[in-house]
Nucleic acid binder design. Structure first.
Length: 425
RNA sequence: GCGAAAUUGGUGAAGUGGUUAACACGGCGGAUUGUGGUUCCGUUAUGCAAGGGUUCGAUCCCCUUAUUUCGCCCCA
């Protein structure tokens, strides 16, 4: 048996790493005062068609669709926003006394695509959504979350790209201008661009093949088509980002693939030489019309989603060591089967007092057990033989200094309290 | 969805159409039956991704499938 294409198993060091980073996310979101939400990994297919957009590739050719036993059309979620918006509407969170509603989520997403490094069919995203405020402060805050997370983790090679699509009116005007610009010359562009011209003209700007052509350089930018209100909003976003000392680049080519965006859009990319084509670490923006589209009252929204695997890839590419726990406090060695029960009791006492400890499950010889203690990076080794069980005086060896202590069983917790404190100094 | 390359044990890997698939690390056992991380000895592949074919014979040749990686599309 092999794992399905584009999936991966988490175990060992990878597991520790993932838990550590998730812990950081949780702590960070707590500081930002966002609440946790967890929505189903599958939803009615229609939600994504309506929410994410009929013309996006994500929905037209990349979803995992299935019909359940009740003959309902379901889809494994390809992104997090649509489900959270549905939940916001269904649970009437818009009726809360305190606005805005700020939430975060973490979980698996699914897209039927050809896998590559940093691109999976089942992958995990961390993201946030903020509902109910049109203040540019929120846009800037949302951008600051991934930036600060990367900073906390020590990731240096990142680049923040921002852009504004403007409100509905600005966006429409721009779209028309773009079509007018490319229409006469569409035959000179690549095949993909011809397709984009029909489906989603904004994406032509993203083309790598035609990027150097004059027609690209002279193309109108979204910024030129912002009306006064949209322009003011964007200026404020920039002002607030500057207030936080966040370096950004206004990049008119950032248009995002999902249909629901309005005003601010942003992407953070890995600026790491060894990184491949999957270099967009996270992305997001404002979606003022989405809640209404999904059936709720007109409510503004802003959010972002971050690729968990790509984050870990970036950390590895930059050789960043994460400071998760790599040691245990104590390893218990019973000399024979006769001492196992006694040792088991000592082990439990330690564990219930807040220490992490382990015991020999393999009936190893004493030598092999010391090796095992080293492999587990145990700070202390507790040897339990016939003498110890009779006298209730444990033999505890500091595995680094090799000093040996005789400690009464009743005082073992005190011993660990004192000595481990010294270790941490 | 399109194009290309890979796939040998727990890990890194060598290798050839022909009896038992190098070497290293790691694991386990012993020398050393209450004290190790050095050294020495022994041992360690459901057999070379899976299935089929060619052949007297295939891990090595051919086909199919699976997975991985790279590029495109798209995106996290």
């Amino acid at each position: 048996m092999q794992k399905p294409k584009g999936t991966y198993d988490v175990f060992g060091e990878r597991g520790k790493k993932e838990l550590y980073i998730r812990g950081l996310m949780e702590t960070l979101m707590n500081k930002y005062n966002y609440e946790y939400v967890d929505t189903p990994i599958f939803e009615a297919s229609e939600l994504f068609h309506r929410g994410v957009g009929e013309t996006t590739d994500i929905v037209t050719k990349e979803t995992y669709d299935f019909v359940d036993r009740g003959e309902r059309n379901m889809t494994l979620r390809p992104e997090g926003t649509a489900g959270v918006v549905r939940s916001f509407v269904e649970n009437k969170m818009y009726a809360r006394e305190s606005m805005p509603v700020k939430v975060w989520y973490f979980g698996p997403m699914f897209r039927y695509e050809r896998p590559q490094s940093g691109r999976y069919r089942q992958f995990k995203q961390f993201g946030v959504e903020v509902f109910g405020s049109e203040d540019a402060l929120v846009d800037a805050e949302v951008i600051s979350i991934p930036v600060n997370l990367y900073k906390i983790l020590g990731l240096k090679g990142i680049k923040v790209n921002i852009n504004s699509l403007g409100d509905k009116e600005s966006r429409e005007n721009y779209r028309e201008a773009l079509i007018k610009h490319f229409e006469p010359v569409i035959d000179t562009l690549c095949e993909d661009c011809k397709e984009r011209f029909k489906k989603n003209p904004l994406r032509i700007l993203d083309c790598k093949i035609d990027a150097d052509k004059e027609i690209m350089k002279t193309a109108p930018t979204t910024i030129d088509y912002l009306n006064d209100e949209s322009r003011t909003h964007f200026e404020n976003v920039k002002k607030y980002l500057e207030a936080l000392g966040i370096d950004y680049v206004v990049n008119p080519r950032v248009v995002r693939g999902l249909d629901y965006y309005t005003h601010t859009v942003f992407e953070v990319e890995a600026d790491i030489p060894s990184f491949g084509a999957q270099n967009v670490l996270c992305g997001g923006g404002r979606y003022n019309g989405l809640v209404e589209q999904v059936g709720g009252p007109s409510t503004n929204g802003v959010g972002f989603a971050l690729g968990f695997e790509r984050l870990i890839n970036a950390l590895e590419a930059e050789n960043i060591e994460l400071p998760y726990e790599k040691e245990i406090d104590a390893y218990v060695i019973p000399m024979s089967d006769n001492e196992k029960a006694y040792g088991f009791d000592v082990l439990q006492t330690l564990r219930m007092s807040g220490f992490n400890a382990d015991i020999d499950y393999m009936s190893r010889k004493i030598g092999g057990n010391f090796k095992q203690a080293d492999r587990l990076n145990s700070k202390f080794v507790i040897i339990i033989g016939e003498e110890e069980t009779k006298s209730n005086i444990l033999t505890i060896k500091n595995n680094r200094t090799k000093e040996e202590y005789k400690v009464s069983k009743e005082l073992v917790i005190d011993f660990f309290d004192d000595n481990l404190e010294k270790e941490e100094h």
